[in-house]
Write a protein that binds this DNA or RNA. Structure first.
Lengths: 368, 368
DNA sequence: TTGAAAGCGCTAACAC
DNA sequence: GTGTTAGCGCTTTCAA
């Protein structure tokens, strides 16, 4: 665009025969401008197809109308739901989303800090399970509102949206136990991350309360990825007996295990039951039991919290800041064919109707 | 952050005993500044943990270092791959991504124009199969570089990354024909969109060259969604015979059909073959044949093209603009169990080895 | 090599 | 109600 034909407040003000201040007032719906002037200005604005330069406006107002979303890129499809949630409420509140994809562990915090320091964003939504305290302190020191997703911070005033990983995993394990499985292999995610630890805890709790033996060899550690889990489950099965059931800390790993089992002619759930965690689409199609995380809600809740902060912050100069909140979202246990114990079912049929509730696409033909 | 402790070029320049111009030069690696001064300034910058305000910088430079990515949100997981591709190359070139999710048909163009007019982005990547000419003209008139994905514009100088939908669909259809299927039902996407039309054309072309009869009732129109396709395929099957094979214009619809078939006890591929288009993960796990679109490459190529434009544009003031390019990416035919004709296979076993190449996870146990 | 000063395009005190 | 003017924080001529 030629410099000449760039239309700015100045151009408008001249054409309208008013000052730039008045133009600005009109544009910002100030009440103290004469209707007639307003109309005239608006007409010119229309005519010249004028749109204020966001950069200049923001510099002046010292804000960006932008929210940074810092996310890891594992299981990309999974997080896109979350992003959609964030976008929905952010856009409704007039905020834009700037994407901060951290490709590996180190980049997340770096990116977050960069955005803040450069003042590119008014606030941040951070999903990074391994963010450590020092970094968090550094972020806090910048005095920019932010919301953490699925990550607790001990005793600190931080807005957080949590997933009840503990209960999710406990309920899943209880379900497996109820189905009559006794040797339940649990595959953890990277234990550096909060959610991995919580899910493990949930599993252990359920085992304990059931009086089943806590066998140490029934927990193996992986890292939430499909690739990593396959050799590990292979090695496990070679060394030990096949467990009754395998509970993977996330669906990605469940997919890896699923593939392994099929390739080795193990039938699910006849030879071994399988459960995941997350609720991704593929798992649904394969008829695998999982604990669904409400990703959209997660994003929406985070954005809601952040937007509230931002709006509060910009209205009343010195209104008391909002109390930091912790929101906890529950997972939904989606029971499917992969964990329905055929032996138990057979027995139940003799004795009466099957009690286990099938959730979701109920009447679908089992796929396995 | 208190106004007082906000550190700006001014603060730095004072502490360093130089002018703001010099500080700016140091920050921008200008060669004409004495090494000693430079060192001093950098030390202060370090000490005060100074990071330039992007807003101010950008206003001054009249750019944003930001690329807008306008995408629809259908099949979210699918597009996230693309976004990743865009992000990879954009970030490497120092650009940020601002997300423009258009939730419905109308919002895409609107959003694109808004970003441009507000000068929030230096350039745009637009994936919107139904963008019409007038809007496109309007965008072009803004004189902001942009790249279109999977959308041709007749005889116009526009950067475009295309998918070879035509060949992809033709190859798929040929494959089905080779497998001995004769009644191949084709389910189109929304024919308003370019890719839907191209895929249909590919199908028709393959049918024609094979001398099979072009039966009009073998094409039904849907809209690329899982929900829409189910009643349509149901109605079709009730009215007509079950076709030999069903070729869906995208994987989402293939999933819908898959579910329908299973629920009605049709075996794949024994009763009917099934093929999709896109190459999403779920389809892989279900063992359904598809034509894989290289989403990551698509995004990366688009970003590459755009970044080249931007860099060119900002270096040489008046260097000749880059020629608009059209890049065409090929799909990859992933043949899986769902389209391998059991009858043909049986025959082949009598006569020799099976010739059809299995692509991908070759030795996997068929899932169906 | 460096500094002074004029913008970039908009907003907001303050004065009229 | 409206205009003047001084910023917002940085870059970049132009002069020295």
């Amino acid at each position: 665009m030629r410099k000449a034909d760039k239309v700015t407040v100045d151009v408008i003000s001249q054409k309208a025969g008013v000052s730039t201040a008045t133009v600005s007032r009109v544009l910002n719906d100030s009440p103290l401008v004469h209707p007639k002037t307003k109309r005239k200005v608006l007409r010119i604005v229309q005519e010249l197809n004028y749109v204020p330069n966001a950069l200049a406006r923001n510099l002046s107002l010292n804000r960006t109308d932008t929210i940074g979303a810092i996310l890891p890129w594992v299981a990309s499809g999974f997080y896109s739901e979350l992003l959609r949630g964030v976008d929905d409420v952010a856009r409704a509140a007039g905020y834009h989303i700037i994407l901060g994809i951290c490709h590996d562990r180190e980049q997340g915090p770096e990116l977050a800090l960069k955005y803040i320091r450069e003042q590119r964003t008014d606030g941040l939504i951070i999903l990074d399970p391994v963010l450590d305290e020092p970094i968090l302190d550094e972020i806090r020191r910048q005095n920019v509102p932010f919301v953490l997703i699925d990550r607790t911070v001990p005793s600190q005033h931080v807005n957080t949206i949590m997933i009840d990983d503990f209960n999710g995993a406990r309920n899943m394990t209880r379900h497996l136990i109820e189905e009559g499985y006794q040797n339940i292999l649990f595959i953890t995610g990277d234990l550096q991350s909060y959610d991995a630890r919580e899910r493990l805890r949930g599993y252990q709790e359920a085992i304990e309360e059931s009086q089943l033996a806590q066998k140490k060899e029934l927990v193996i550690e992986s890292n939430f990825t499909r690739e990593d889990v396959v050799p590990k489950i292979a090695k496990y099965v070679e060394k030990n007996l096949l467990p009754d059931a395998i509970f993977c800390s996330n669906d990605e790993m469940a997919l890896g295990v699923y593939r392994y089992l099929l390739e080795n002619d193990y039938k699910i759930p006849d030879d071994v039951a399988l459960a995941g965690f997350d609720g991704i689409d593929t798992i649904d199609f394969l008829g695998i039991t999982t604990a669904k995380i409400p990703m959209h809600d997660l994003g929406a809740a985070a954005a809601r919290l952040l937007v509230d902060q931002l709006v509060k912050g910009r209205s009343g100069g010195d209104t008391p800041a909002l109390q930091p909140q912790k929101v906890m979202l529950q997972t939904e246990l989606l029971i499917r064919k992969s964990t329905l114990n055929p032996k138990k079912a057979a027995k139940l049929v003799e004795n009466g109707p099957i009690q286990t509730k099938l959730v979701g696409e109920k009447r679908r033909e089992p796929l396995l």
